[in-house]
Amino acid sequence: MEPLTEHRLVSGPVVYGFLRLVQVSEARQEALVASLAEYCRSHELELSGVFTERETSTGPGSAAFTGLLDVLALPDVYGVLAPAASHLGPKAIAAERGRRIEAAGSRLLLVRRTRRTCPASHLRQGIPPHSPGTPHLLETES
């Protein structure tokens, strides 16, 4: 008898991580990689690799980001996972990198957002966006 689907090892959509780690301790790097792995585990994604940028870049091109774009051209790659948008670089660089990821046909998934939003109805009722119990809308799919 065949095992049930829930008992078979099934690969989730493939994602690649991207970290920008300029002057970061090894412990911090390990914690960030672990957060990417945990996000993938809880969202049934397969983390196939992590690209790490270690130097401050003045533009959207870097060896790590170019490598990331190369793997996004592979078949069956779902997207890019980063701890936060800041890992793509300063705002202007991050915006351009986001466009390049999207142009490659991939999604950008963020473990956490820098700015949270809440329903307009909560704002009209005077409920602050960060109050406990307020359902936050996330940028990524659950």
Rank of each mutant, 00 (worst) to 15 (best):
L138S: 05
L123A: 13
R107H: 09
E53F: 05
E30T: 13
G59T: 13
P3Y: 10
S42G: 01
A27D: 14
G133L: 03
V71C: 00
G49Q: 11
E141M: 13
A63V: 08
A63H: 00
L110W: 03
R115A: 11
R115E: 13
E38N: 04
H122Q: 15
E30Q: 15
A85V: 12
F51G: 05
V80R: 01
S131L: 12
G98Q: 03
A27K: 14
E55Q: 12
R97T: 11
E53I: 15
P13Y: 13
S62P: 07
A64L: 09
V14Q: 02
A104E: 05
L36F: 00
L74M: 09
H130K: 13
P83H: 00
H122G: 01
L36N: 04
E139T: 14
M1A: 06
Q29N: 12
H122P: 02
A92T: 04
E2S: 01
L69D: 04
R107I: 04
H136G: 06
K91G: 06
E55H: 10
G59R: 13
S142G: 13
A31N: 15
S57G: 10
A104S: 15
L68N: 12
V71F: 02
S131E: 15
H87A: 04
S131T: 11
S42H: 09
V50R: 05
M1Y: 09
L110D: 04
L68Y: 12
V77R: 10
L88H: 09
Q23W: 09
A64K: 08
E55G: 04
G59Q: 14
L110Y: 07
S121G: 07
E139W: 14
Y39T: 12
S35K: 07
C40S: 09
F51L: 14
I101N: 03
P119R: 08
R20Q: 10
L123F: 14
A82T: 04
L19P: 12
D70P: 06
M1I: 11
T56Q: 02
E141R: 12
G133I: 06
T56W: 06
L138F: 07
G79C: 00
S25F: 09
T66L: 10
A84T: 11
V33W: 08
D76I: 06
H87T: 09
R113P: 09
